[in-house]
Design a protein around this nucleic acid. Sequence first.
DNA 1: ATATTTAGTCCACAACATAGACTAATTCGG
DNA 2: CCGAATTAGTCTATGTTGTGGACTAAATAT
Lengths: 390, 390
Amino acid sequence: MSQAVRHDAMRARNLALVLGEVGARGAVTRAALAEITGLTKTTVSKLVGDLIEGGLVVETGAVRDGERGRPGVEIRISGRHVAALGLEVNVDYLAVCVVDLARTVRLRRTQAVDNRAALPVDSIARLGDLAANVVDEAVEKGLRVVGGVLAVPGPVDRATGDVRNAPNLGWRDVPLASLLQHFPFPVRVENEANLAALGELWFGSGLPDFLHVSGEIGIGAGLVVRGRLFRGAHGFAGELGHVVVAPDGPQCRCGGRGCLEQYAGQDALLAAAGGVRGQLGVAQVAQRLREGDERARAACERAAWALGVALSSAINLVDPGAIVLGGIYAPLFRWIGDVVGDTLRARLGQMRGTVPPVIVSRLGAEAAALGAAGQVIEQVMADPAALLHT
Amino acid sequence: MSQAVRHDAMRARNLALVLGEVGARGAVTRAALAEITGLTKTTVSKLVGDLIEGGLVVETGAVRDGERGRPGVEIRISGRHVAALGLEVNVDYLAVCVVDLARTVRLRRTQAVDNRAALPVDSIARLGDLAANVVDEAVEKGLRVVGGVLAVPGPVDRATGDVRNAPNLGWRDVPLASLLQHFPFPVRVENEANLAALGELWFGSGLPDFLHVSGEIGIGAGLVVRGRLFRGAHGFAGELGHVVVAPDGPQCRCGGRGCLEQYAGQDALLAAAGGVRGQLGVAQVAQRLREGDERARAACERAAWALGVALSSAINLVDPGAIVLGGIYAPLFRWIGDVVGDTLRARLGQMRGTVPPVIVSRLGAEAAALGAAGQVIEQVMADPAALLHT
DNA sequence: ATATTTAGTCCACAACATAGACTAATTCGG
DNA sequence: CCGAATTAGTCTATGTTGTGGACTAAATAT
């Protein structure tokens, strides 16, 4: 429910408006901000003054624009004070990163760990150490880490931040919220596929509308519409892996049959490409593809066709502006992109004038950790007043 | 992009907040409104004063609540002044209705017309006459019609309000916007499936989260999340009819194969139920079902199974709070509801604790016209200041 | 060197919400 | 039946914030 608007809320919104415009345009003078926002020069000056005082933006030197008249002073987002922590637990690695308010990645660490074999508590403790290190380094650089988000591969209870069941990780009822309380700033928990999509939004293509597909053991999707993540009624939207490809297809672990995961999930793809299960990684498949291995090629084609079928359902339902393939699909894009695109055109081309373009994510495995940190930054950008008054 | 907030915007938002609370609770005193909204009694009194002056709310007599202290005066939405026009063109009928601000349906008219056989201009002219009549009647009742929305079965260009292609009606490039200009209030155009979903939201079950399925010749779906319609990047979301049920199934008019429409669309269902095409209506099939006709039963079962398969994909993707079956599925619900539910439970039950309930729409064919009028009402509720200042 | 132009600041003012005093209308207790 | 207590609603002084126009600052054009 919306809240009452008082003078402080008015100010908070206008601060966010100005900060947002500065972020969107990179560098703007106060005069230009007044023009853009419709606020008066007076108001913009006062707002910018507050933002400068809070360390969120900085004045850069005067502009020599060659026009006549007094040159304006450009304002830009300051990356020197406020920063955010991104954390990720995945099946076979831990990752942390620190991102500043200008969305520059200042620090990152990755550690290869088999988190399926470890206890959740130990994985989290290890991640905590890793995070403590980068936070210390960030503090040395003069940064103030104002919050963190942890990406986990599985559904997260939005209310408590706990994980009820993350099958890929072997986690059940892990009280994450309480394990993350020792940080000197709030840390929230969020689904990895959602955060990967947001990572793509803030650090990748820059498109405002897309469906990001995270190919891992499961296949998650994050839908971004007008720069906002779509979550559904309970926060479980985006389970692309269990969209039906063929209703009488192979039995899936979810209880259904013929789910996408059985055709294009990591396990199915590797099994089809290489024979002995567990012996082959995605990198090796890519290598074999480069060498022209026929079996690997056929496996990719089948997976890509299935992905195309599932995506055609997804496009009909949610009308995304583009399809971004990430996770294991990123290194395999050369061999699956076209088949996916052709399948979409065959199934959708007649109905819709244009089929959403299928593009590859440029972020790789970092996407989720970046999205996690980015979400904190986004929160600051959306409500800078909350930070200024503390 | 968000806009600058000035004093007038602050006031506008608080007016909307108060009006919204009055709408949500039916009847509230100023004191209760102050408590609920967090605004002071002074402010609430002033806001309510403005709303009364504008005819949007009325004071009803003092409350005798038995408590001690001065009794409050209850405020409720006034249905006596502001009203909205809902219009619908469908394949075989035209419909108009007038709804007041209290969301009471004040007038409705339906006319059976074969709009596929008629020229678009003639259909619209006929609809215009029908609308002019009810608007006159509304004016006689002291109502002020402040806007209208027209529901059409097909994708609508959100920018212009024109219809590029509505295959079920046989419309191509109909400049609806210009045909609707003669009304003394603005009339927008919107997709019929979306409006039917909104009709369900405002005049039906009252649920805030659901996917409404409009079974007609095509199968449209409207997704409502937290009381808001999800439209997708271009406004074409909800094409449930072309979600894949079986990738090698029957050829569909969209170019794909095995789309839901080929199993559960009106034509497919009637053909499977009755043999000779075009000879049978949904009402007759329902009659045969009541008589225990085996062929009709089998047709429904097949359609329901396919609907379940497509909906399981939809639920995985968009995570709706419930499934509401409308259009032709409403009269057939007795014979399809259980199969749909069973299919969903079989495909989703293991993954999700609970499967969204499958319920029937209570609105029938009026859903879209009601949703159309409701959308205007909703606009007034969301920004009453726009109406007060004119 | 002076006029012109544009950027940014200053100040009086207006709009709106707040806080608390005040009035109004009811119930409770004697 | 009357006064105390209680709750609803109004009135007034005050504070915060944005506006608009005057003013100062710093550049280019002539």
